[in-house]
């Protein structure tokens, strides 16, 4: 019984830690820490316009991707 509790607690805590680690690795790979200044300033420019712009940009990309045939 004791052993089972220890094993479970070890397993659970390592798993939670690993989730956080993977989130961190994903963020590094994604380039979120490449530009520390922009990263900090992003909060200032956060708003409806920015979200709309991001969505428009994504839509544009999708549309173009469908029609675009590089030679």
């Amino acid at each position: 019984m004791d052993n089972w509790v220890i094993a479970m607690m070890l397993g659970a805590s390592i798993f939670l830690g690993a989730v956080a680690l993977f989130a961190f690795l994903w963020a590094i790979k994604n380039g979120q820490f490449d530009d520390e200044e922009k990263f900090l300033n992003a909060a200032k420019f956060d708003g409806q316009d920015e979200l709309n712009d991001a969505i428009n940009q994504e839509r544009k990309k999708k549309e173009l991707k469908r029609n675009y045939k590089p030679e």
């Binding site: 490449d34 530009d35 520390e36 200044e37 922009k38 300033n41 420019f45 712009d53 428009n56 940009q57 544009k60 990309k61 173009l64």
Partner: peptide
């Protein structure tokens, strides 16, 4: 912000990402 948005508004520009640093 201005550079990114101005470029985003152009037709055909897929992505404009400027590093401030």
């Amino acid at each position: 912000w201005l550079n990114e948005k101005a470029l985003h508004k152009m037709d055909g520009v897929i992505e404009a990402n400027i590093n401030f640093t």
